[in-house]
Design a protein around this nucleic acid. Structure first.
Lengths: 231, 231
DNA sequence: CTCGACTTTGGAACGAGGTTCCAATTCTGA
DNA sequence: TCAGAATTGGAACCTCGTTCCAAAGTCGAG
């Protein structure tokens, strides 16, 4: 890529014509992450894709953490932005939760990022919307924080799992995936040490992550209902 | 540490007397992690502490991931091991959940490890115990997996938060911590973009993570009760 | 006891990646 | 038009996981 002709002239590749900007850098980062996964995003790769040097990027992005945070915020905003929503009710919260799940599933690296650094803007944004949508449900003041936190935990847990799922086994079917998982265990203790896991195992092949996530949300909502007006 | 005397003799530091083993390596890794946090654990630091070379470690531990996984499993076993338990009921499950929370809180790097690589043995072990303790509750077969998963998500979410909390702000009080958190946000959008977060903020100063986690567990349990025999 | 094969050890060396540095280039405003 | 500021490109630095290999120890067969 760099031309080192014999002597001293033509020392550098020509300077780029269009200016860099945080916006294009972040977008390019997202492209790389989506296309080739988390480990493919390096400052060198990013610089190459933008036909520039790694150093130039640092004038727009202070470091890799901030870059990933910006990428995550970018995606999360697409989900939390549009809907301060019409009918605020359980249904809207359910929708938010599933929307978040869907973004994470579509961009597994986002799951890793959200759970690696909670309290980053992207997480805060999700937490905020959860809190807002919780308002119409009749939750005692002293419980609102705790309940919102429980929903947030559900998101973070799912995020971690999505990230790991596609990271460990990019193209494996679920049966092979489970085999890989339990293999790691069997090495450590007898197979009979995990009766529940092995009872559950067959279901893994044809189970629906999204549905499972939704069931968890319903459980939490049912818990709220039960806690606020017991029967 | 290495003696390079003038010429060619005494080329190496003497060989260690006591044999290395996976057990001592993992335990030393845990010591470093507990004392100085996640980023302090490098093969060089570990080797130095054991008065050996980095290469020697690879005869006992195949790589860093496996080392961290082993360290995590070691700690988790202390919590899941002892109690197949007497009276299996909601209370036992609650106890397990809080025990897990307590280990994570005592070893924040464990939170990072559990949520970075779910499906590692340590996570599987937790999931297994959750599943077992769920058995006596009257949960329809087709829901057991989903319910167990919801509890696991709660653990993973809390794990991520504990890891981040002590990582970002090792010695900060919570007020300063929140300030740091929201500062990162305010840079990105107006403070009025996060009404709920700012409403909650004051509570952060004197709130109890453990209690909050327990409230989430109760919510899930209440949800189960409501789902299995509605009123 | 002795010798050779195998295992373990210690440390150097490699390669990758984040970050810093700096000279060259371009831009901006007086 | 020109000096100062900002941007760019790429080399260089540093740390870290990992690999390599020669030295040192261990152990069983003869």
């Amino acid at each position: 890529m760099s031309k080192k002709d014999g002597s001293k002239d033509a020392r550098r590749s020509p300077r780029r014509r269009d200016a860099l900007s945080k916006r294009v850098i972040v977008q390019t980062a997202i492209d790389i992450l989506d296309a080739d996964g988390e480990e493919a995003l390096t400052f060198r790769a990013l610089a190459a894709r933008l036909s520039t040097g790694a150093g130039a990027l640092y004038h727009h992005v202070s470091n890799k953490d901030q870059l990933l945070a910006a990428a995550a915020t970018n995606l999360v905003e697409r989900v939390t932005g549009p809907a301060p929503s019409s009918d605020s009710s359980e249904a809207t919260l359910r929708t938010l939760m599933l929307d978040v799940f869907d973004v994470i599933r579509a961009h597994p690296w986002l799951g890793a990022q959200l759970s690696r650094a909670p309290w980053q803007p992207a997480d805060l944004l999700i937490f905020e919307r959860i809190g807002e949508l919780l308002a119409p449900l009749q939750i005692p003041d002293e419980m609102r924080f705790d309940v919102a936190s429980a929903f947030m935990n559900h998101v973070l847990g799912a995020a971690a799992q999505q990230a790991a799922g596609t990271c460990i086994a990019p193209n494996l079917d679920r049966a092979a995936f489970l085999e890989k998982v339990t293999a790691g265990w069997t090495a450590h203790a007898g197979r009979d040490q995990l009766p529940f896991v092995h009872e559950i195992a067959p279901q893994l092949a044809h189970h629906d992550d999204r549905q499972q996530f939704a069931t968890g949300v319903n459980l939490l909502l049912a818990g709220i209902a039960a806690a606020t007006h017991p029967c």
